[in-house]
Design a protein around this nucleic acid. Structure first.
Lengths: 120, 120
DNA sequence: GAGCGTACCCACTTTTTGGTAAGCTACCCA
DNA sequence: TGGGTAGCTTACCAAAAAGTGGGTACGCTC
C-alpha cells in the first residue's frame, strides 16, 4: 500500500477535508477543458485561434474561461501583443510544466486503454 | 518536448478528436467524485457507508452514480453480501490499481502545491 | 468606405449536474 | 407492534455549467 503525502493533509479523518484548497485546485485541473488545454500546451505554445482548433469542440466562451482560471492559478502564461489585429500567445509556466509532467502519464495510459475500458 | 503516445491518436490534427473514446474515459476518471473515490480505495477497501464518510461531502446519489460508472468501466469491484442488513464492499480492480498508480502522483503534487497555487 | 481579421466580452437561454427528502427491503431486537 | 439497520433508488427542484448570438477594437486591404 502506498503511503502518499495525502496523509499529511488529514487522510485518516476523511480524504481531503471538504473545503480543503486541494479540492479547488483539483476541480480546476481536472475540469473537462482544463486538462486538454494543459496537454495541448505541453506539446507547443499556441495562440488563441490555434488552441480553439486544437482543443476540438471547445467553445470560445469555455476556452476563455478555462484560460482565465489556468492563468490565475499560474499554470499558463498569457502573452498579448498590442498589435492590430491582436495576437496572444499561450504557454505553460514552470508550474504548468510540473503539472503536465504528472498529467501526461495519466493521459497516455487513458489513451492506451480507452478502447478496452469502454468495450464491455 | 515529450513525445507521448497521444500522437498515435491523432494529436497533430487536433488533440483527441472530439468523439474519441479517450474523452469519455477522461470524463469518468476526472469527474469530481471519481478521483476521490479512486484515491480512497487505493488506500484500502471500503464499504458503502465508509466511502460515504471518507469521501467527505459526497451525497448518496452522487456516490451511487460514481460507483456505477467506475464499476462499468472496470475500475472497481463491487462485492455485495446478501445479508440483512446488506453489506457491500468496494475495492479496486487490477485496472483500477493501474489507474491509481498514475493518479496518485498527480494528487500528491496538487496536495503539496495547492496552498501556493491559490494564494495569488 | 466596406469589409476582413483576431481575440475576446456580455446577456440570454438551454442543458446538465447535483442536492434533498422520501421510500424500499427484509430481518433482528425490544 | 414498531423501530433500527445498510445500501441503495426515485422524484422533484435548485444551481451551475455551457451554448448562442451579438458586439467591440483598430488598422489594413480592396
Amino acid at each position: 500500500m502506498q503511503v502518499s503525502t495525502l496523509n499529511r493533509h488529514g487522510f485518516t479523518a476523511g480524504i481531503l477535508p471538504a473545503q480543503c484548497p486541494t479540492r479547488t485546485v483539483l476541480d480546476h485541473v481536472t475540469s473537462k477543458w482544463g486538462v486538454l488545454v494543459i496537454v495541448a500546451l505541453s506539446q507547443q505554445d499556441l495562440r488563441w485561434g490555434e488552441l480553439r482548433r486544437v482543443v476540438e469542440g471547445v467553445s470560445e466562451k469555455m476556452l476563455a474561461q478555462t484560460l482565465r482560471t489556468l492563468e490565475a492559478d499560474g499554470f499558463v502564461n498569457r502573452d498579448a501583443q498590442p498589435t492590430i489585429p491582436p495576437r496572444v500567445d499561450y504557454s505553460l509556466t514552470e508550474r504548468g510544466r510540473a503539472l503536465a509532467a504528472r498529467l501526461l502519464p495519466l493521459m497516455d495510459w487513458i489513451a492506451d486503454n480507452a478502447d478496452d475500458i469502454l468495450s464491455r
